[in-house]
Nucleic acid binder design. Structure first.
Lengths: 198, 198
DNA sequence: CCGTGCATGTAACGGGTTACATGATTAA
DNA sequence: TTAATCATGTAACCCGTTACATGCACGG
């Protein structure tokens, strides 16, 4: 139960519709710290309401129905209990790391450089987004929320710095030494070539 | 299909059993970049074998059976095709970020400090692990793999630095200003208190 | 009048984890 | 002999996404 809590958190800022919640995660959060699809939002909203954490206030909006959800007392208590619990260690799925680990000397290094450069572009864009977000004058970000934004900013800056360093090393052939006491890379290449040349 | 590729990647280093693969992800990868359970490893291994990407070499080991898997030609090609594709942008699920965003002034700041300090401990431990790993003299890490390790190292160092900065700010009451043009924090507190005092 | 954005929802599907079941080997 | 580690596997379950279905409002 953590998507539910994220939903409660979004509603705590201001009453919101399922659509609003999706947009909130669409623009900001997704790649930064969380993601969510309609397929989970609406059923969860329904469930949260049935269990008394939230209630809906249907508002007329140009003659049509919108369901704005608001937290109940139980919902506020649940949200704050969740906030009080120590967050679990983040789980990261980064293919780039995996690919770096499996890269070997028969693979084209320029290809790797292009992977790194693509990542740099994506992260630069996100960084720009984050920087803009915290001074756009419209979005609500509390003082403590700002600390979180700073976290995202620092992480992205670090990633970009790391890419620059790494590309430099790759281009200069100034790679760090490997740790390979059992000559596994040599074995790997032998095994690979014997399979590929058959 | 990406867990499958990670499995192929591990096998590329040296022929391995399902158990070996799990351990590989257990110790190193899990929180760092990837995770995997037996419940997915064994069925995938079976599947990968059926589709001709790997084959098993049963080895006698003290009178008992062990299934070591090795890559086929098709497996090597598949692995290298995967390596050639640009990695997708990493997805992160960090509750801490979410909690920071939802924190409000009626919540105890010391609690938040303790969350941050716990995170610092966990990351420090991981950092130590990573540093030890790259110079333990036994694990195989290629030159390019070392670049990946450096990535993990820098990310962790940055996180720790961020925590130190943030805790300092929290303790000195030197928080960054909020962005709150619509006085949402005030509204939030009003909404919250009206619910909690009922 | 038409495309885009707002808005709500469901069903099928895919994917992975948890928990369970089993048993051999090895170091203390 | 006993606990820990090595070792393989399955089934039930949870969870979330994709794709689909629907329709209003509004600007050009």
């Amino acid at each position: 139960m953590s998507i539910e809590h994220s939903i409660l958190a979004v509603i705590s800022f201001t009453p919101a519709t399922g659509y609003d919640i999706k947009s909130e995660f669409e623009t900001k959060a997704s790649s930064l710290f969380w993601g969510m699809s309609y397929g989970s939002i609406y059923p969860k909203l329904k469930n949260l309401e049935e269990n008394g954490y939230i209630y809906s206030v249907s508002k007329e909006h140009g003659g049509r129905q919108k369901k704005h959800y608001e937290l109940t007392k139980k919902g506020w208590i649940e949200l704050e209990n969740w906030l009080s619990e120590a967050p679990s260690y983040p789980s990261v799925k980064d293919e780039l790391f995996m690919k770096l680990a499996a890269w070997h000397s028969e693979m084209d290094e320029d290809l790797l450089v292009s992977h790194l450069e693509k990542r740099k572009e994506e992260s630069t864009e996100l960084l720009q987004y984050v920087r803009h977000w915290q001074q756009n004058g419209t979005s609500f970000i509390s003082s403590i929320g700002m600390i979180g934004i700073r976290y995202a900013e620092m992480k992205l800056e670090t990633e970009i710095r790391w890419i620059d360093e790494s590309v430099e090393k790759l281009k200069n052939g100034a790679l760090p030494p490997s740790q390979d006491p059992l000559s596994m890379e040599h074995e790997l290449l032998k095994r690979r070539n014997s399979k590929l040349n058959s």
